[in-house]
Design a protein around this nucleic acid. Structure first.
Lengths: 204, 204
DNA sequence: TAGATTTTTAACTAAAAAGTTAAATTTATT
DNA sequence: AATAAATTTAACTTTTTAGTTAAAAATCTA
């Protein structure tokens, strides 16, 4: 009967926990709030997951899965590096648009407890892809198709341009004094803006 | 006798509180830890600041002062925009190098309670400077001295490139599998890398 | 329907932390 | 020395929260 554990309840708990943990962080989250959010009670929460830490780690690992993007499709295509970068920028900004709280969550929790990052090491598959990505950069730099840069810094630049404005959203919103919808539009524009910016920087 | 309040004790408390709050966040910080860190006890802490929230706000406002950079010297010089950008990049990366935990702290706390950002609005002086900065950008774009970009996005890009890699430090460290000192060197290199990158992107 | 599983109810405990206080002690001031 | 201010000590209360439990009720399953 182990298999027929009602997954929909476990799923409800996980969804609720994800929502609350992402919003309040590990320290700020309350088990009662998670239970209420899931439409159940604390006793049942204890019945499924033994502890807060246990529940958190389950959530955290799930989120890591999502934030390390799947490079495969992009890297394995035969496109020139500039097109791949543009594709990556579009995909990644789409991802953070749809999951705007995830980057802040990751940064906060990893900073508070860097040990958690060890999970990410199991994703060696993606790091291999990233290296392929870097190799192609170097090759095209040598051939003169794009400007020469340290590929490590180039990758940092690309990711910085994609993610940071979403992380700093409340700060930007206050400084620019604009409303939520307008900021969303501004951030959406970044798919084109960042693509063009990178294109200009890389032109030989 | 109100004036002769021993400021050095108040200062010790503020220093300790800054350290603990930056490291643990508002939720994670413990008053006992702050007291111990300051070399005093909780009762004295209560004698100087009435509550945790009170102490936190004092610290938070102090930190906001630091993170909004003083544009005056840079903006008011008669240099071309590219030199000003380079100057800004160097100064800002130096700042985050010396205060590596501040960006994460700000982002975490502002995200958890966006109301806090209202303090920043008192810094209208710097926003005026930023607008001057943007105007000069536009002027030089029109004259064709630098490539045309939406100045809002250009400013976002500059700040993203400066700050993000410092924010994502533990993630980068894990992924690249390098030790602390080497990462510090890598991040220091960014003063030159980011400057050059922006220079290439802006060349007409 | 009988038995197993899931879920609720309604407590409870234990621990941690913030906030408070009064009295004693030390230190500075005059 | 006398007074005022700063600081410590050592307790205390209150609040919050995680974790636990037992028994009843509801639901599912064979």
């Amino acid at each position: 009967m182990a298999q027929s554990l009602d997954l929909s309840t476990e799923q409800k708990i996980l969804e609720a926990a994800k929502k609350v943990f992402i919003c309040k962080g590990l320290d700020g989250a309350r088990l009662d709030e998670i239970a209420t959010e899931a439409g159940i009670n604390k006793a049942l929460l204890h019945y499924y997951f033994r502890s807060k830490e246990n529940l958190f780690e389950t959530i955290f690992d799930q989120i890591v899965e999502k934030i390390v993007p799947d490079f495969t499709a992009i890297v394995e295509s035969k496109k020139p590096i500039e097109e791949k970068i543009e594709l990556f920028v579009h995909r990644y900004i789409d991802f953070v648009s749809e999951n705007p709280q995830i980057p802040v969550f990751m940064i906060t929790e990893v900073n508070r407890n860097p040990e958690r990052m060890k999970v990410i090491l199991s994703h060696s598959h993606n790091f291999a892809k990233m290296q392929q990505f870097a190799f192609q950069m170097i090759t095209e730099m040598q051939v003169g198709r794009i400007k020469s840069f340290n590929p490590l810094h180039l990758i940092l630049n690309i990711i910085s341009l994609c993610i940071f404005p979403f992380i700093a959203k409340p700060v930007i919103q206050t400084i620019l004094q604009i409303k939520d919808d307008d900021l969303t539009i501004l951030l959406q524009q970044r798919k084109e803006e960042v693509s063009r910016f990178l294109h200009e920087a890389l032109r030989p």
